[in-house]
Computed example of a mutant assay.
Amino acid sequence: MAEPRYEEVGVGTRLPGLTHTLRRGDLVVYAGASGDFNPIHWSERAAAGAGLPAVVAHGMLTLGVALRVLTEWAGRDAVLECATRFAAPVLVPDTDEGVEITAGAVVSEKLGDGRVRVDLTVRCGGEKVLARPRAVVRLR
């Protein structure tokens, strides 16, 4: 798919969404890459001790998965900034099926200089897991 051109993108443009499955092994790989070895991300006992119903995905891993909507649309180095709040944990069961995260996005503002603001919607099990996720993306 060709990268979008600023002149051709309007407010309200919907980006192709994505569905991504997270499994426990993904949490281990992310822990190694990020250095975040908090046991709530791999130990049922630690998660329960922290008052969580199950092992949870790293918040930044969830955001990173969601940002793929933007990088697949506009290119790997197009995202200039992003922000969100973590609204609900992504519970990752110890099964082969894992859990699905869905992400969609819409252009909410044209900022000039080839930049657009994009609002994302990120859900797991029908529940929003990121609150007000948004990003600024540079287009060609």
Results as ranks from 00 to 15, higher is better:
residue 32 G to F: 10
residue 106 V to W: 00
residue 57 A to F: 05
residue 134 R to Y: 14
residue 83 A to H: 15
residue 20 H to N: 00
residue 51 G to K: 00
residue 55 V to R: 00
residue 123 R to M: 04
residue 47 A to T: 04
residue 1 M to G: 12
residue 118 V to T: 03
residue 80 L to Y: 11
residue 31 A to R: 06
residue 121 T to Y: 01
residue 50 A to E: 11
residue 84 T to E: 06
residue 1 M to R: 01
residue 107 V to T: 00
residue 110 K to N: 02
residue 22 L to D: 01
residue 86 F to M: 12
residue 52 L to A: 09
residue 120 L to G: 07
residue 106 V to A: 02
residue 57 A to V: 02
residue 87 A to I: 11
residue 55 V to Q: 01
residue 9 V to L: 07
residue 50 A to D: 05
residue 91 L to P: 00
residue 55 V to N: 02
residue 1 M to S: 08
residue 25 G to K: 08
residue 132 R to A: 15
residue 137 V to K: 10
residue 43 S to Q: 05
residue 48 A to V: 11
residue 86 F to G: 05
residue 102 T to G: 07
residue 80 L to N: 08
residue 55 V to Y: 00
residue 127 E to N: 08
residue 130 L to K: 10
residue 11 V to T: 03
residue 124 C to Y: 06
residue 34 S to Q: 03
residue 73 W to C: 11
residue 50 A to T: 05
residue 58 H to W: 10
residue 53 P to T: 12
residue 117 R to T: 01
residue 27 L to H: 12
residue 4 P to Q: 01
residue 57 A to K: 04
residue 31 A to F: 10
residue 138 R to M: 12
residue 49 G to A: 14
residue 6 Y to L: 01
residue 7 E to L: 03
residue 48 A to L: 14
residue 67 L to S: 13
residue 34 S to K: 01
residue 3 E to I: 06
residue 58 H to Y: 06
residue 79 V to S: 08
residue 16 P to L: 01
residue 20 H to E: 12
residue 32 G to E: 06
residue 28 V to W: 09
residue 117 R to L: 00
residue 75 G to M: 11
residue 123 R to S: 07
residue 16 P to Y: 04
residue 92 V to C: 07
residue 17 G to C: 05
residue 62 T to G: 07
residue 137 V to D: 09
residue 137 V to S: 11
residue 138 R to S: 12
residue 2 A to T: 13
residue 68 R to K: 15
residue 71 T to R: 14
residue 138 R to L: 14
residue 81 E to V: 14
residue 30 Y to A: 04
residue 20 H to G: 00
residue 124 C to I: 04
residue 102 T to C: 04
